[in-house]
Amino acid sequence: MSEIYAFIEAEKTTHPVAFLCRLLEVNRSSFCAWLAGAQARLSGGPLTRPWPTRSP
């Protein structure tokens, strides 16, 4: 499923997200949740660092 969401992310500059989701038969809310998770992973959020960090 991640490949489909990645495709939508790549093509959203040329086609509306709603159209792509309908064409590929995925929920737009699922794409938005995947996108939020991807952004959290890139920012080093809790999805990539589930353990507590210590202050120096």
Rank of each mutant, 00 (worst) to 15 (best):
F7V: 00
L42I: 02
M1W: 12
E25S: 14
E3P: 00
S29Y: 14
I8H: 03
L47N: 04
W51H: 07
F7C: 03
L24H: 05
N27V: 10
L20N: 00
P46V: 15
N27R: 13
S29G: 08
T13I: 07
S30F: 11
A33F: 13
A33L: 14
G45D: 11
L20G: 02
A38R: 06
L42F: 06
E11T: 10
H15Q: 13
C21S: 02
R54N: 12
Q39E: 03
S29W: 09
P52Y: 00
R49K: 15
G44Q: 05
G45S: 12
T13M: 06
L24Q: 08
K12Y: 01
P46D: 05
W51L: 12
A36Y: 04
L24M: 09
S30N: 07
F19T: 00
P56V: 08
I4K: 01
C21G: 00
P52G: 05
G45Y: 08
R54T: 09
A10G: 14
E11A: 12
S30A: 15
K12A: 13
G37V: 01
P56M: 14
E25I: 03
P50K: 14
G45H: 10
L35G: 01
E11G: 04
S30Q: 08
A18T: 02
L42S: 10
L24T: 01
L20K: 08
C32V: 04
A18I: 01
H15G: 04
C21Q: 06
S2L: 04
C32L: 09
A6K: 07
A6C: 09
S2N: 05
P52E: 07
E9Y: 10
P16C: 04
A38N: 09
W34R: 10
F31D: 04
Q39V: 12
A6D: 05
M1E: 04
N27H: 15
